[in-house]
Computed example of a mutant assay.
Amino acid sequence: MEREVVDPASKHKTVLLHEVVEWLRPEPGKRYMDGTLGMGGHSLAILEASLGRAELIGLDRDEKALELARQRLAGHAENIHLFHQPFSEFEDALDELGWEGVDGAVLDLGVSSMQLDEADRGFSFLHDGPLDMRMDSDGDLEPAETLVNTLNHGQLARIIREYGGDPMAGKIASAILRERESEPITTTLRLASIVERAYPPKMRRQARNHPATRTFQGLRIAVNRELEELDTFLSSIIGRLNPGGRLAIISFHSLEDRAVKWAFREAAKACKCPHHQLHCTCDGVPKIKVLTKKPLMASDEEMQGNPRSRSAKLRVAERLGPEGQRA
């Protein structure tokens, strides 16, 4: 009996799809960028909303996802430009095409279902596989196995506490160091088991999610330098938005959302003088207008159909003209 072949794109559900398209307002003849192409869900919707007459740059550091997205977007092949690189390097892609800026950009900072479901990628604590967690396994980043087996107690605890938000970070780090003394930790299920045993029995019984959830999240963020990538992107994207262009960012982690919130807030300020200065002398103008005073969340209907969307937060900003006015 032949095994049924499942299209990964059919399993992956694009988060906040309608909201992103509604806020970006794709138009024919305009240029857009999807910095986290993934399965191409947002990109396809943007192209369709523009009646197939917009141009789009798509970036992803996962080469397999990039190829699958290329197949999914084949009907718009003449309108797309795909790059195998992280979104922090988006300016290289724009410069290669000779684009001064874009009229809309989107980031979806979550991990795709395809990456979670493939055991050999090392993202899942439910399937056994090598302890990898790299978005780009051919890149120069070190896998999670290296971090788990070489970092000291303080370094591991900080990753699990700050990036994973786990209050048991210290005990988990101690358990990891103790276990790796006898044999290196090289598989996902072994690490998940170590983390689970580090939890007191009562906490394990009361936990809503698997005890290893936060540890795996923290390691994934550290391995892929996700916060550094985001900071680099935020420092330069606003300067490459055309007047009236909009930026939509979906985050799933409080540290990511906080970084987006503060970057938007700073860019929306007119005065750039030091806080201690009583009177403004910089004659500054705001670069953007924040369109979402509070982050937008998924609807109850979307959450029911896609539990992953429960933690998604969408923030949107619009690039202002040189005089600080809307285009």
Rank of each mutant, 00 (worst) to 15 (best):
G104S: 12
L59G: 05
E96P: 00
R72V: 02
E96T: 12
Q71D: 14
R53D: 14
F87Y: 15
G104N: 11
E89Y: 04
F87W: 10
A74P: 00
A49H: 05
E67F: 02
Q85M: 15
G101K: 09
L47E: 13
H81D: 08
A74N: 10
S88W: 00
G58D: 09
A69L: 07
D60Y: 01
H81I: 01
A49E: 13
G98I: 06
S50C: 13
T36A: 11
R72S: 10
I57L: 13
D60N: 04
W99H: 08
E78P: 01
A93V: 07
L68S: 06
R72N: 10
D60P: 05
H81C: 04
A74F: 02
H76A: 07
L94Q: 09
G75V: 03
L37G: 12
F90M: 09
G41W: 01
R61D: 05
V102K: 06
F87C: 10
G38P: 03
L94D: 10
E89H: 14
A54N: 07
S43A: 15
G35C: 13
E55I: 00
L94P: 04
Q71A: 14
A49N: 09
R72T: 05
F83Y: 15
F83D: 12
E89S: 15
D62P: 02
E96D: 14
L82T: 10
R53H: 11
E91C: 10
D92N: 13
D60L: 03
L68P: 00
Q85L: 15
R61I: 00
F87P: 08
L47Y: 06
A105M: 14
E89A: 15
L51S: 15
F90N: 07
A54G: 09
L51D: 15
A69D: 10
G98L: 06
Q85I: 02
A69W: 02
W99I: 02
D95G: 05
A69H: 01
G58K: 02
V102F: 05
N79V: 00
H76E: 06
L51H: 14
E55H: 12
R70W: 01
R61L: 05
R70L: 10
F87L: 09
I80A: 08
L73E: 08
G98K: 03
H76V: 01
Q85Y: 00
L94T: 08
D60T: 03
A77D: 13
L59V: 01
I80Y: 04
D103K: 03
R72Q: 08
F90D: 12
L51T: 11
E89C: 14
T36Q: 10
S50F: 01
G52Q: 07
H42W: 04
R61A: 08
E48G: 02
N79Q: 15
A45G: 06
D62V: 01
